[in-house]
C-alpha cells in the first residue's frame, strides 16, 4: 500500500525547476502532486508522477540526481480533527514523519508522508480504519 515518489535534487539557480518540468512534459509524464523543500543552496523537489521509473531515467539522462522513495498516501476525510487523529496514531506507535505534503484531489484530501517505518505505519493506519491510496489510484486521483 505504498506509493512511489520521485525526488529530484535542484540547485538554487534560475531555470532549474523549469528544466525538470520540461523534461517530464517532453516525455509525456504527468505530475499529480508536488512539494518543494528549500535550503539556502539547493531545493528538494518531491513529486508523485504518472511514471516514476521513466521519469527517473529521463531526468538522470538530463544530468539530475533523482531517486524513487517509498511513501504512503493517506486519505483524510474533509472533517475537523481527522489529521490530529492520524498523527496521534503515529505518535503512539513511535513512528516519526520525515516530511509530508498534500496530494491534491477533487473532494477529500490525501496526505503524502515519508515515515520512519513504512510497514508498521501502514499496518497501524489500516488497523485504525484509515484509507490508504495505492499507486494506481494516486496517479488517477484527479480523474
Amino acid at each position: 500500500m505504498t506509493i512511489k515518489q520521485l525526488s529530484v535534487f535542484i540547485e538554487n539557480r534560475e531555470g532549474s525547476l523549469g528544466e525538470v518540468a520540461q523534461k517530464l512534459a517532453e516525455n509525456r509524464i504527468n505530475i499529480i502532486s508536488l512539494s518543494l523543500a528549500d535550503t539556502s543552496d539547493y531545493g528538494m523537489l518531491r513529486m508523485i508522477v504518472s511514471d516514476p521509473k521513466k521519469a527517473k531515467t529521463v531526468l538522470k539522462e538530463a544530468g539530475f540526481s533523482a531517486m524513487i522513495t517509498e511513501v504512503i498516501a493517506v486519505k483524510v476525510a474533509n472533517e475537523m480533527g481527522n489529521l490530529s487523529q492520524l498523527l496521534n496514531c503515529f505518535a503512539d506507535m513511535n513512528i516519526s514523519i520525515e516530511y509530508m505534503y498534500a496530494l491534491a484531489t477533487n473532494k477529500d484530501a490525501s496526505i503524502i508522508m515519508k515515515i520512519t517505518d513504512v510497514e508498521k505505519g501502514v499496518k497501524t493506519l489500516l488497523d485504525k480504519g484509515f484509507e490508504l491510496v495505492c499507486n494506481d489510484e494516486a496517479v488517477k486521483i484527479n480523474g
Binding site: Q5, S7, Y42, M44, R46, T69
Partner: peptide
C-alpha cells in the same frame, strides 16, 4: 556533486 552514491531525499540527511 550530489550523485547516486550519496543522494537522499531527506534534507536532514543531506545537511
Amino acid at each position: 556533486e550530489v550523485d547516486e552514491a550519496f543522494f537522499s531525499d531527506e534534507i536532514r540527511k543531506l545537511e
